[in-house]
Design a protein around this nucleic acid. Structure first.
Lengths: 335, 335
DNA sequence: CTGAAAGCGCTTACAG
DNA sequence: CTGAAAGCGCTTACAG
């Protein structure tokens, strides 16, 4: 059974391929094709199960109706949720998604962008710092792109970000309000802008409350294996018995931290309070449940696609370059 | 700046487009193009940053070098990990991935397959039961497809499955060996073959140990919201105080079950042992850590792609129709 | 509304 | 090795 082409449909309908094409692409009004004819053609398409060949259409129009989603690691909870949220919206508006993971590897990220350039109409990217140059090239080539969750300094690329500053502030305020005096802040991956933002926000905010102790800020080197953070956290806590609250800059650090606290037998929250940026399903279930600052994943996805669509449709960069979405403080039992 | 085409490269190299095409596609030997010329052409391609237009090549060859990955929900941990493992292998061998989630909706799954049919060279699918007909159509159309984790009865479609029977057996054996007498088995989503397999394996295996009590098997109706299982589990356990071990057929049930056990203040493992099919990162961290039967995600991905590639390359279905991979019992503290 | 045709950028069979 | 050409299946500008 040969695949049907637009010619076959045209022959069956007794019209010329152009007419079928117009109906498929919703231009029947514009082309003043009778409603009757349009109906007939749609009926034939349905009956025969004809599906247009996208490669051909893409070759002709230069549009692929595919969006490239480039994240750090699709198996990571945050990115997987983001991918799902983006998928939900993208399919609704007629776009497919190809995804790929950079694994935080600049070279891989750059290669992926280059490889997908002609295969996608636009990119949604959570960039690694080393992808800056390649992203600038995309901008120069007027390829639609929107950055999620992370960004570059000194570069005007549309981006949808979480308001890290406000989120951290609300966390510090919660801890300060509850009377904690010696708050540790544990962070890693400082080459990522959002991590820097969180750290800076903590410093500013803790200082404002008179609670900033530089020795209680632990900056861990980035580790590929998350288990690797355990040791550093443990050594740090052992050396800082005065700590009465720990603010983790991201959920995977908090998860490792929880393991350490179990080993150390530091009870939460009586011995030490725990608070994490970026929620995780574990936190809800843990005993005691862990208070966290949740990122608005659905909103990030929605705004990201919306921005990208504006670019893809209008061939121009929309006015709002940077969107800051609020996080949400979810108070549980650990503070 | 206009996009470069193969003609431009040919002009720069002073050859005809065919020659460039042969070099790009690694046919220079076959076409007896001099190594010198091939090198020159490759150099020009590199310098200019020329990337062939895939739409054009696809239109000509009928191959897209894209694989359609259709899972239940990309944001779910199991599928996200699977997606990552598949991505790792697929990109290595030159394939992109488009993904989509069926959300366990037969109609959506069917639509997705139909929509992607001409856009992908093959499908990797974790099917819902209602997709059987559409999958059969693919088979009839000789479209490469491989089923992961789930399958249909009475249909010969290549599939890569976990050996649920052996996994459940090892779990029952562990519980029996430790002397548990009243083992509850909690299951849901019985329209999924793998769930049926687990239930049947439990019955057979428990019976063999003289530990099968039909009233201790809880079959919960499938719920879109996972929280919905909590109530059913709670009512069941309250009514069966004799239970001294619970075997959850899947991890999300176990997670809800853990919540219930907290509320009921049933200590693990002193009051009740807990065992779950399908590992989860929560289990490692939970206090006590939860024993589970882990599915071999990397192996599923590897074998799935391998099988698909055989089909895509050979245009025929490989001999092995069904591959059964062993699970792994991870003994922690909850049993 | 219909018809005829060009052309998107490739790949490949054919002739030399 | 080179050259010339056809054709994959669409979309669209043009003439009527």
């Amino acid at each position: 059974m040969k695949q049907l082409s637009i010619k076959d449909i045209a022959r069956i309908a007794g019209v010329v391929p152009s007419t079928v094409s117009f109906v498929i692409n919703g231009k029947e009004k514009e082309m003043r094709i009778s409603e009757e004819m349009a109906k007939k053609i749609r009926k034939i398409i349905k009956e025969t199960g004809y599906v247009p060949n996208r490669s051909a259409a893409s070759l002709r129009t230069g549009k692929t109706h595919v969006i490239g989603l480039i994240v750090e690691d699709i198996s990571n909870r945050f990115f997987a949720s983001l991918a799902k949220a983006i998928e939900d919206i993208a399919y609704q508006v007629g776009y497919r998604l190809v995804y790929c993971s950079t694994e935080n590897d600049d070279k891989k990220g750059t290669e992926l962008i280059r490889m997908l350039h002609k295969q996608v109409d636009g990119f949604i990217v959570t960039p690694t710092s080393g992808m800056k140059e390649e992203v600038l090239k995309l901008k120069k080539a007027k390829k639609p792109i929107v950055l999620l969750d992370r960004y570059f300094t000194d570069v005007d690329i549309p981006s949808v970000l979480v308001d890290n500053k406000e989120g951290i502030q609300s966390g510090v305020q919660l801890l300060a309000g509850k009377g904690y005096k010696k708050i540790a802040f544990i962070v890693t991956a400082l080459e990522q802008m959002q991590m820097q933002d969180r750290l800076n926000a903590f410093k500013t905010s803790a200082k404002a409350h008179g609670l900033l102790f530089p020795e209680l800020i632990l900056e861990l080197p980035f580790a590929a294996e998350e288990d690797a953070y355990e040791e550093g956290i443990k050594a740090f806590l052992k050396g800082h018995q005065e700590v009465d609250a720990i603010f983790f800059a991201t959920n995977y650090l908090a998860i490792q931290g929880l393991k350490v606290l179990q080993e150390l037998k530091w009870k939460i929250p009586s011995r030490v309070a725990v608070l994490s940026f970026d929620d995780h399903e574990i936190f809800k279930l843990y005993t005691p449940a862990i208070t966290s600052i949740s990122q608005p994943i659905a909103a990030i996805a929605r705004e990201g696609i919306e921005n990208l669509r504006l670019q893809m449709n209008a061939q121009k960069v929309p006015a709002v370059q940077e969107l800051l979405l609020p996080s949400e403080l979810i108070v549980r039992k650990s503070v």
